[in-house]
Design a protein around this nucleic acid. Structure first.
Lengths: 154, 154
DNA sequence: GTAATTGCAAAGCTTTTGCAATTTA
DNA sequence: TAAATTGCAAAAGCTTTGCAATTAC
């Protein structure tokens, strides 16, 4: 069940003066097992399967700590709760305004935009924190050229 | 104080079976005067300067209606409340993770990304709904190459 | 032993909603 | 007048926080 990444992370927690607790380890293990993004509530559910009395507040506190240490990150995919994932698993999300579908794209797709924005404004883009909106191929095909759909994920 | 855009919008409200009320007109006028984005609470403040008993819930309901009609839109700039603006004033926001500064960029900056994503995935990008994160020129210069700042707007 | 962490319950903040009273067309 | 809109107050959804009890080191 354990993982060298979990051990390394706990080591970083200790190095920062924190303690390697059962709950913290379990939160990280849940994220490793998931291998994708999950909400705090989903993570709590996974953790509670093995540690029934781990509290949701504890999960939030653990995630906040791990984020400070650069071990996990959160993203906003739409209007719901934040999604959490291991920092090393960062990627970009395209969320369809019409059906809510999530398309994942690699980091390199952003290179031209990154360079253009850096040149124009000096801003160093690292746009993992929010998703990009639009319409997925399916919905774009279904919707005539005009605007005025019934957004789902907006 | 009034504006032809406001009249046109009220006409669209009526055309949709809705009523052109004092409050709705005032919400739109506030947005026209602001000429930028504002939170629902800020808009309510502006409206209440002239109509002291216009309720915040009414502002939310008016904004929701206008958004359905394509007259206004909202954006998420960070973790705070949504920002509302006239749809015609859409632009993109780069929000600095370190200091919270907001840099605005035009739509055309996205063209290469848009084309690339369309070609790769068929997804039609219209990324106005969320801001892009990163570091502004100032903070990027201040921060050595490494990671691990003290995020403000994340 | 002592400082860090946790559980619980309560509160915070933004947004939505039910319903009776009011207003628009 | 009839249907739409509003104010108010309450609730919903996500996240944070205070504090006493517990746990890691």
């Amino acid at each position: 069940m354990s993982d060298e990444r979990v051990e390394a992370a706990m080591e970083r927690v200790r190095a920062g003066g924190g303690r390697a607790t059962v709950d913290r380890r379990a939160v990280l293990e849940a994220l490793v097992r998931t291998a994708h993004h999950a909400t705090a509530e989903e993570i709590a559910g996974l953790v509670q399967a093995e540690h029934p009395d781990c509290n949701l507040a504890t999960v939030y506190r653990a995630l906040e700590l791990f984020e400070r240490l650069g071990i996990v990150s959160h993203v906003h995919l739409g209007h719901g709760p934040s999604q959490w994932h291991l920092a090393e698993l960062a990627h970009h999300h395209l969320v369809c305004d019409s059906c809510g579908a999530v398309v994942e794209v690699g980091d390199d797709v952003f290179d031209p935009l990154r360079q253009r924005i850096l040149a124009d404004t000096g801003f160093v883009l690292d746009p993992h924190h929010f998703s990009l909106s639009g319409q997925c191929a399916r919905c774009a095909a279904a919707t005539p050229p005009a605007a005025g759909q019934t957004p789902t994920g907006s």
